[in-house]
């Protein structure tokens, strides 16, 4: 029997639920919280942090802590919303190879696709 998983990929928080029989159950994260911050961070030593831990170290690593990347999904780098975001966020928003808005990371010096970043947020 196939299972149904629902993911609420929020701008700030994400939540995953599973359909079990005739009821839906929200899956808790390792800390027992039902929602997880939609954040991904790349530390100087190459570690990838996701969720709560990414949020906790945001102060120490602002340029490589990505949040609210959902706002960039499906937008071109010359989009006025992206221009506004560029002024607001501490990480760098750049033009991707195909003209889409992407994020540049200092820690890894690679560009990553923002939709993939959103996947890591859980």
């Amino acid at each position: 029997m196939s299972k149904v998983i629902g993911i609420d990929l929020g701008t700030t928080n994400s939540c995953v639920a599973i359909r079990e029989g005739d009821e839906t159950r929200v899956i808790e994260n390792s800390e027992g919280a039902r929602t997880t911050p939609s954040m991904v961070a790349f530390t100087a030593n190459g570690e990838r942090l996701v969720g709560q831990s990414a949020k906790r170290q945001a102060v120490t690593n602002p340029s490589d802590t990505l949040y609210a990347v959902k706002r960039l999904i499906g937008r071109r780098s010359d989009d006025p919303t992206v221009a506004k975001d560029k002024e607001m966020v501490p990480y760098e928003i750049v033009r991707g190879d195909n003209g889409d808005a992407g994020c540049a990371l200092a820690a890894k010096t690679t560009r990553r696709h923002r939709s993939r970043l959103s996947c890591w947020a859980r």
């Binding site: 831990s53 990414a54 906790r56 170290q57 120490t60």
Partner: peptide, 21 residues
């Protein structure tokens, strides 16, 4: 050493006695 799994960073401060992080 700062560990994001246990600590919440509130601020950064220059220190002459401690290594970064």
């Amino acid at each position: 050493v700062f560990d994001a799994n246990l600590h919440q960073a509130m601020a950064e401060q220059p220190s002459d006695e401690h290594a970064d992080g």
